[in-house]
Design a protein around this nucleic acid. Structure first.
Lengths: 167, 167
DNA sequence: TGTGCTCACTTGACACTGCAAGCGAAGCTC
DNA sequence: GAGCTTCGCTTGCAGTGTCAAGTGAGCACA
């Protein structure tokens, strides 16, 4: 058992990964919870909807883009619906499907939350990294993704924390 | 709202981060759950104990090193205790404190789980990165940590997935 | 038209986590 | 040594996530 399963650099990187992966979401969740009263997962969903045509998307499409399982998204949307920020509509094109639609109230919530959240991301993550590091980390993560999920069944595809709108 | 809050590289890196941070834990959790019947958080606790003097640690120390809040660790240990893998002892040096002690059964579980988990980490993460990327990512994460948690109140400090023992 | 499959989602039970409150032991301070 | 405060930990509860089973609409084929 004295055998090394990871080399020294890998071990260091692994430990640091574990810690950041614990701390960073906690930090961002706390900020969003405090300032907007929502979780990060819910924010991503709202932000994604705010950037979609008609501010709406099919559930399954939204799930893939927001990196959530269908079941999880269903729960997330249910909670957002209770608060009046999203509503569900039967999909016109396929009676089995649902579309999640961002309400005006939901729109206001995203708009209000976006700048603070963007600032938090910059402050917590990118303020500490050089542009070179940012680039290399991005490339490395993409390589990891390529192997972890070759057919891109999940992939975050919204334009970032700023919630850029189509306006 | 056309304003860019993150530059292009940052946005790409952020999206990739979000996806990997979702997928990687899910992958590792699934592997551990399938092969050893425990969560990753529980594994880290067991591994840490297995490397500690007398296979035991004070709760607060363990919490810090395993990257968990005290409350969370208390729950985790309670669950491990139910399964007979850990037991609690009043700390001799301070009557307020507890020590978590790894039982023989717990020891066997870690030993059995370690190689498979190490392989999963290598396969899921490091197999996709060059050694240069591994190094740079590690440095970048450390820089992030330095800012996120300057006084190192949390810090993963076990020797990696292989659960290197002192034998 | 009816039977049976698949698809898109939803639902319910259960596990894990954070937060806030609680509890007893230690450590003052007088 | 009585009364406070602090410390180390635990507990209960609410929120969020997963997994497996359920529901009802489409679709294929006789």
């Amino acid at each position: 058992m004295a055998q090394q399963w990871l080399d020294d650099d890998q071990q260091r990187t692994w430990r640091s990964w574990l810690t950041v992966a614990e701390l960073l979401p906690r930090t961002l969740d706390a900020q969003l919870q405090r300032d907007a009263g929502i979780s990060h997962a819910a924010y991503v969903v709202l932000a994604m909807l705010s950037e979609s045509p008609d501010r709406s998307r099919r559930m399954s499409d939204l799930a893939r883009r927001a990196n959530q399982s269908q079941s999880r998204l269903s729960h997330t949307i249910a909670r957002l619906e209770e608060r009046g920020w999203v509503r569900r509509e039967r999909a016109a094109e396929d009676g089995r499907g649902n579309r999640a639609v961002l309400t005006d109230a939901g729109w206001d919530v995203v708009r209000a939350a976006a700048p603070g959240h963007a600032a938090a991301v910059r402050d917590a993550l990118f303020a500490s990294m050089t542009s070179e590091q940012t680039r290399v980390v991005g490339e490395a993560l993409d390589a990891v993704l390529e192997r972890l999920d070759p057919d891109r069944s999940l992939r975050v595809e919204y334009d970032g924390p700023e919630g850029q709108s189509s306006e």
